[in-house]
Lab assay of single mutants.
Amino acid sequence: MTYRVRIENADGEVVTIEISADELREKGLTLEELLPPNARIVEVEEVEP
């Protein structure tokens, strides 16, 4: 499974990243732990691999 994640950074700019569930598991991280300081998740969407 892959996630498309929209993130708002500290400057108010919204960027989109895609990350797979396998990648998260391998790194032992959650989506929140990948965020840079002062950023927030705006939207998470599951996409087909």
Rank of each mutant, 00 (worst) to 15 (best):
M1W: 07
M1Y: 09
M1F: 09
M1L: 15
T2Y: 15
T2C: 10
T2M: 14
Y3D: 08
R4I: 14
V5A: 02
V5G: 00
V5C: 05
V5P: 00
V5D: 00
V5K: 00
R6G: 03
R6F: 11
R6D: 03
R6C: 11
I7G: 01
I7L: 07
I7Y: 15
E8R: 10
E8N: 03
N9F: 15
N9L: 15
A10W: 10
A10P: 10
A10M: 11
D11M: 10
D11H: 11
G12W: 01
G12D: 01
E13S: 15
E13G: 09
V14T: 09
T16L: 10
T16I: 14
T16H: 04
I17A: 01
E18M: 14
I19W: 03
I19T: 02
I19H: 01
I19L: 03
I19N: 00
A21Q: 08
A21H: 07
D22Q: 13
D22F: 09
D22H: 11
D22L: 11
D22Y: 09
E23V: 10
L24V: 04
L24S: 01
L24D: 00
L24N: 00
L24Q: 01
E26V: 10
K27P: 01
K27L: 12
K27M: 10
K27H: 07
G28E: 04
G28F: 04
G28K: 07
G28V: 02
L29N: 04
L29P: 02
T30L: 05
T30H: 05
T30V: 05
L31N: 00
E32D: 08
E32V: 10
E33V: 04
L34N: 02
L34A: 12
L34P: 00
L34K: 03
L35R: 02
L35N: 01
P36N: 03
P36M: 04
P36R: 03
P37Q: 08
P37D: 06
P37K: 09
P37T: 07
P37M: 08
P37W: 03
N38P: 04
N38L: 08
A39S: 14
A39D: 02
A39K: 04
R40E: 03
R40S: 05
R40D: 01
R40N: 04
I41T: 02
I41F: 05
I41S: 02
V44M: 06
V44G: 01
E46N: 07
E46Y: 14
E46W: 14
E46M: 15
E46P: 06
E46C: 13
V47K: 05
V47P: 03
E48G: 14
P49F: 12
